[in-house]
Design a protein around this nucleic acid. Structure first.
Lengths: 271, 271
DNA sequence: CGGACACTTGATGACACTCAACTAGTGTGG
DNA sequence: CCACACTAGTTGAGTGTCATCAAGTGTCCG
């Protein structure tokens, strides 16, 4: 289950190879963890920015509150995720962050991050990669909210969580704990909580997803993936190691490729 | 008008201060531009990734195609924007990119970017900042699509474009050229083109936005901003210069702040 | 002049929202 | 141990926003 601790450094190495110096630099992130309880706020929209956080244990989420009292959840964070990276270049928080469970967090600030830029290409690439990965999650959620119906939205989201959890906990069985109320799911998916309830009933009747309180069971993952047309492309970020070998960079060697689209002619491999 | 060229380096300096070496490094990006015509594809989803692009002139957009033939637009790029950064750590394109107008692009690859990580903290921070800024745009669009009705969606989007254009072209008057068909707007906002048409009529009747083909006029920007509750927080990214001075980084000096949320007590200034 | 394309307008219906009543589980206090 | 409150979720009825389909207008362009 997800009570077991995640080895953060080992988790990072899924994104980008690291050497011993990198690892030493990054263990700093875990030196002075703080603990928050479920429901507690990490920070709120509009506050001055003074830190980023590495989520070591537990679940968290970020959200924007609307004037009419509704809200939109932007991210759900799992152990190993870095919170607040997106606000790197802003003066004030763009979203609030709160805990979904008891959680342990390591803090670090801009100077640490910029110091990292100076100390290690690989660590820099790692953070760049994590930011890119979060962005990929966001674009997928955008598609989900903009272009799918309630059933597809919910099924797709559950698929995504399943896949993300599997990445963090490779041994994850076909049932798992997902500490998200139906109201929270509604805030994530741009639905009403009532409709989330109905949609769960639909998925249960279709035999795709069973739910009991916060326990989710996916009897047949393949079937769910098929039903939602889920593709995990956007969850497979990894910085190829050979990129760090010194090689010929563009644009120095670029041939002016006037009029011919980049990559045109290189057809996508059949998956 | 937006026919006039944007000085890219000067544009970058709005995001992060640069020294002469940084500027020299970055001018490389413009050395071998390529030109694409309106409608032309830069790349397609699932293709192998071999480059990023700096948009020097013109407009572009990225999108995801759905199985049912609809699509979701993810970004609209303006001169000075970097395209494809989000795919930094992926093997294949997550979205297709096409031109909205004739456009000029500078290409660069991973090695150039990673080389930059080694050459300049400031340039690294600049790219980090651009990635963060694009993510902020995405989160705002997520809120827009998830939690607002058609009228608010359209008005908010027009506000956003107006503000973004003003950042690139400070002299922008209250009317401007926006090369987006109603179908395209529908694909951006998660609506149907028919409903976009109706919504434009509504905005016209409310006296908020007048439209003639691709020309948009905002007679009273203040009124529109007020009506949409628009806030430009998320467009104001900038890396503070003092962060580059050597100072005490966390987490080395972090005091374990057990149980007390980061930033708690620092109330947001009244805006 | 004809055809393509972008947009407009009307009619109809589906999907999801709101409101409201109800159930089940959980915690609290007497 | 039971009464009560509180929360999360379920279900039904009525409503509304927006999608879809279809017909029609205007403009551009050869």
């Amino acid at each position: 289950m997800d009570g077991s601790d995640v080895n953060i450094i080992r988790h990072f190495e899924k994104y980008c190879e690291l050497d011993d110096d990198d690892r030493t630099l990054l263990t700093e992130l875990e030196r002075h963890p703080m603990t928050l309880t479920a429901g507690e706020l990490l920070w709120e929209e509009h506050q001055a920015i003074d830190a980023f956080c590495l989520l070591r244990k537990g679940w968290a989420y970020s959200y924007r509150s609307m004037n009419d009292g509704t809200r939109q959840v932007l991210d759900v964070y799992l152990p190993g995720d870095v919170i607040g990276l997106r606000e790197f270049s802003f003066q004030r928080r763009l979203s609030s962050v709160a805990m979904l469970t008891e959680a342990s967090l390591g803090r670090f600030n801009h100077r640490y991050l910029i110091g990292l830029f100076g100390s290690s290409h690989r660590a820099t690439a790692l953070f760049f990669s994590m930011l890119a990965g979060q962005q990929a999650l966001l674009t997928e959620r955008l598609v989900n909210i903009g272009r799918r119906n309630a059933r597809e939205k919910l099924a797709h989201f559950i698929c995504e969580m399943y896949m993300r959890l599997k990445r963090v906990y490779p041994e994850l069985p076909q049932h798992f704990h997902m500490p998200l109320s139906q109201q929270m799911l509604a805030d994530i998916l741009g639905l009403s909580s009532v409709h989330v309830s109905r949609t769960f009933s639909e998925l249960r009747e279709a035999g795709l997803v069973y739910r009991d309180r916060n326990r989710i069971e996916i009897p047949d993952p393949e079937a769910l993936i098929e039903a939602t047309q889920f593709s995990d492309h956007y969850l497979r970020e990894r910085v190829a190691d050979h990129l760090f070998e010194s090689g010929k960079p563009w644009p120095e060697t670029a041939v002016a490729a006037k009029g011919s689209p980049v990559g045109q002619g290189r057809a996508a491999d059949p998956e």
